[in-house]
Each structure stands twice: as C-alpha cells, then as structure tokens.
C-alpha cells in the first residue's frame, strides 16, 4: 500500500511539475485575450474548439499528412547524405583539404539566410519541397559528422589496425560509433531546421500542406483557424523532438554513461 501510494504520489508530483508552466501560460493567454478583446487574439477555448473542428476531419489527411511525409523524407535523405559525405570527408585528409573552404563558408552561414534562395527554388511539386528541406538541413549533419569522424581516437584506430579490423566492420564499430555523439547533435539541429523549411516551402507556391493552410486561413481572416494551425505545428514539433530524444537516448546510452563516469558520477 505504502509503496503503491508513494509511486502514485511521485507520478502526481511529476505530472504537476511538467504541466505547471504550460497551464500557467494558457491562463495568461486567457487573461490577455479576455482583457484585450482583440479580433486577432482569440481565447484558448475558442482555439481549442476550432482546433477540433478544423483538424479532426479529412483535412488532417489532406494537409497535415503530406507535410509530415515531406518533412520526414527530406530529413532522412539529408541524414543519409550528410553522414555519408561527412564520413568520406572526415576520413580523407586530401578530400578535407579540398572541401575545407566551402565547408568553412557554410559553417559561417546561418541557415535562415538561405530562406530567400530556397523560396525561389520551392516549386509546386513535392520533389522540390523535399529538396528545399534537404538542402537546408544537410549542413549541420555534414559538418558535425566531419568533426566526429576526425576526432576518432588514434589509440582506438591503432587497436583496429593491429587486430586487422577494416572495411565495413571498422566503419560500423569504430568510425560511426565514435562519431555518433556529434552526428546526433547535427541531426538534432537539422530536425528543427527541417520543420522551419517545411513550413516555409509550403507558404509560397503551394496547394497543400500545413504552411499553405495556415496562410490560407490568415488571408481569409479565419483567425481562430489560423491559430489552430500554429498549435498543430507546435504539437508536431514537440512530438518529433520527443521521438528524437528517445532514439538519442538509446543510441548514445554509452556516451551519457561515459560522461557521467568521467565527471565522477
């Protein structure tokens, strides 16, 4: 009884901790909406009702799903491309010397700067939109992978050489695993860039998608509907980030343990 009660109490406290700040912010929103009575700032309950009306319909299939599919396709493609190129560049000093100036340039360019250019490229079809996402989020993955691959411990590399571990096994057990903390950091950055680019690519020259829908609502002065779209985007970002955290925790389990051990627990 006491153990079960304790666990329930712990769970309750935890739920309270997690929900306290969001609840407070919603309350603040409520107060602000009630006092301003602005047309552009509907109250949260109105947005919630609209949310259910707008998104619990075939619209979720027609507009949200294609967005998510393009987002995931672009992110996956960028991941494969970034890790593959990054591994090649990181492993070869000659290739690195050759590509260094270009990479330094991209490292210095903040991704939002690319937006105007990408808008020009973002055509009406899916392939173009996926391409926009890939071209924006491949860089952090590529640059981080290069760094990670370069930083492979020389003693561990010698160990592999002396046990004649080479080729694919070496790539899989030495190079990619020891670079995985940096690769994951690159992927995390890329994920948030991918969401931004997904929305942006749909706001211009598009006929479907979350970004398109939000802009449509805004142009038609359907303000609560517009807000419901923004909320959906936020929820999507949150869900992706949580999913990423889970993957990261299992991939980098050893790394967090190692860090904790070297810090002296």
């Amino acid at each position: 009884m006491s153990r079960g009660g304790g666990a329930a109490a712990r769970l309750g406290r935890r739920a309270l901790r997690v929900c306290a700040l969001p609840a407070g912010l919603v309350a603040l929103w409520w107060a602000a909406a009630a006092s301003s009575r602005s047309y552009y700032l509907p109250a949260p309950d109105a947005v919630a009702v609209t949310f259910a009306e707008v998104w619990f319909s075939e619209r979720i299939l027609a507009d949200a799903l294609p967005s998510v599919v393009r987002l995931l396709a672009g992110f996956a493609l960028a991941a494969v491309l970034g890790v593959a190129l990054g591994t090649a560049i990181g492993s070869s000093p000659r290739l690195r010397a050759f590509t260094e100036p270009v990479l330094e340039f991209w490292r210095a360019v903040p991704p939002p700067v690319l937006v105007p250019l990408l808008i020009l490229l973002a055509g009406i079809d899916d392939a173009m939109k996926v391409l926009v996402i890939v071209s924006g989020c491949v860089w952090p993955i590529l640059l981080n992978t290069v760094e990670g691959v370069r930083a492979v411990d020389p003693v561990l590399a010698d160990t592999c050489r002396s046990y004649r571990i080479s080729g694919f096994t070496r790539l899989r057990t030495l190079v990619l695993r020891s670079a995985s903390p940096q690769i994951m950091a690159g992927l995390r950055q890329a994920l948030s860039i991918a969401i931004i680019l997904m929305v942006i690519s749909e706001m211009f020259a598009s006929s479907s998608g979350l970004g398109f829908t939000i802009v449509q609502f805004q142009r038609g002065f359907a303000i609560p509907e517009m807000w419901s779209g923004i909320v959906l985007l936020g929820l999507l970002g949150l869900a992706l980030s949580l999913a990423f955290q889970r993957v990261e925790r299992s991939v980098l389990d050893w790394y967090h343990g190692l860090r904790a051990a070297t810090r002296g627990e």
Partner: peptide, 17 residues
C-alpha cells in the same frame, strides 16, 4: 596477422560503446 598488442593507453584502446 597473429600478432596482438596491448597498448600503454589501455583505457583508450577499448570500445566504450
């Protein structure tokens, strides 16, 4: 082949993962 080395920096010669 058929040669094994135990390195002085033993800690760094193990795969942490």
């Amino acid at each position: 082949p058929d040669m094994a080395v135990v390195f002085q920096e033993y800690g760094r010669s193990l795969f942490a993962w």
